[in-house]
Amino acid sequence: MDLTVLVVPRCPHAPLLRERLSLALGEPADAAVTWREITDTADAERLGMHGSPTLLINGTDPLAPPGQPASLSCRVGPLPTVEQLRALLAEARGGGAG
């Protein structure tokens, strides 16, 4: 499973996502997370960033509404909870949400 987080510089939401993702992955973490700082619109579009922070699971943002355009901005709406992240990770592993 490939996990990447796309953030803008000094994203105020990044520390909370980092904490929640760490809790969702458990100790020791069963997957590595790559953090990438994005500073231009072309990279945001190419990588599929839908606001900062964007969590990509296997290259896709599972939290982006269908048809939402890429954006070099702050993410709109609340960050996923630890439970929501666990469910997304389980689905990506092929194990469902349970």
Rank of each mutant, 00 (worst) to 15 (best):
Met1Glu: 07
Thr4Asn: 00
Thr4Trp: 00
Thr4Leu: 03
Thr4Asp: 02
Val5Met: 08
Val5Thr: 06
Val5Leu: 10
Val5Trp: 05
Val5Glu: 04
Leu6Asp: 08
Leu6His: 07
Leu6Met: 12
Val7Phe: 09
Val7Glu: 14
Pro9Ser: 12
Pro9Gly: 13
Pro9Ala: 13
Arg10Leu: 11
Cys11Pro: 08
Pro12Glu: 13
Pro12Asp: 13
His13Met: 05
Ala14Thr: 00
Ala14Pro: 01
Ala14Met: 04
Pro15Val: 07
Pro15Asp: 08
Leu16Gln: 14
Glu19Ala: 14
Glu19Val: 10
Arg20Asp: 05
Leu21Cys: 07
Leu21Val: 06
Ser22Pro: 00
Ser22Gly: 15
Ser22Thr: 15
Leu23Gly: 03
Leu23Gln: 15
Ala24Gly: 10
Leu25Met: 08
Gly26Pro: 07
Pro28Val: 06
Pro28Met: 09
Ala29Ile: 04
Ala32Glu: 15
Val33Cys: 03
Trp35Pro: 01
Arg36Ala: 03
Arg36Glu: 14
Arg36Asp: 01
Glu37Ser: 07
Ile38Gln: 03
Ile38Asn: 06
Thr39Leu: 00
Thr39Trp: 00
Thr39Tyr: 00
Thr41His: 09
Thr41Val: 12
Glu45Val: 14
Glu45Tyr: 01
Glu45Asp: 13
Leu47Phe: 11
Leu47Ser: 02
Gly48Ser: 12
Gly48Pro: 10
Gly51Asn: 11
Gly51Val: 10
Gly51Trp: 08
Ser52Met: 01
Thr54Gln: 00
Thr54Ile: 02
Leu55Gly: 00
Ile57Ala: 03
Asn58Gln: 15
Asn58His: 11
Asn58Val: 11
Gly59Phe: 09
Thr60Arg: 15
Asp61Thr: 01
Leu63Ala: 15
Leu63Asp: 10
Leu63Lys: 02
Pro65Trp: 09
Pro65Asn: 10
Pro65Met: 14
Pro65Val: 13
Pro66Asn: 02
Pro66Met: 04
Pro69Ala: 13
Pro69Asp: 13
Ala70Gly: 15
Ser71Ile: 06
Leu72Pro: 12
Leu72Val: 08
Leu72Lys: 09
Ser73Asn: 14
Ser73Tyr: 04
Arg75Thr: 06
Arg75Trp: 14
Arg75Pro: 05
Gly77Lys: 09
Gly77Arg: 09
Leu79Tyr: 02
Pro80Asp: 12
Pro80Asn: 10
Val82Asp: 03
Val82Leu: 04
Val82Tyr: 01
Glu83Cys: 08
Glu83Ser: 14
Gln84Asn: 00
Arg86Ala: 10
Arg86Leu: 07
Arg86Tyr: 11
Ala87His: 12
Leu88Glu: 15
Leu88Gln: 15
Leu89Asp: 05
Leu89Phe: 02
Ala90Ile: 03
Glu91Thr: 14
Ala92Tyr: 07
Ala92Gly: 05
Arg93Asp: 07
Gly94Asp: 07
Gly95Lys: 12
Gly96Asp: 09
Gly96Gln: 10
Ala97Cys: 13
Ala97Lys: 15
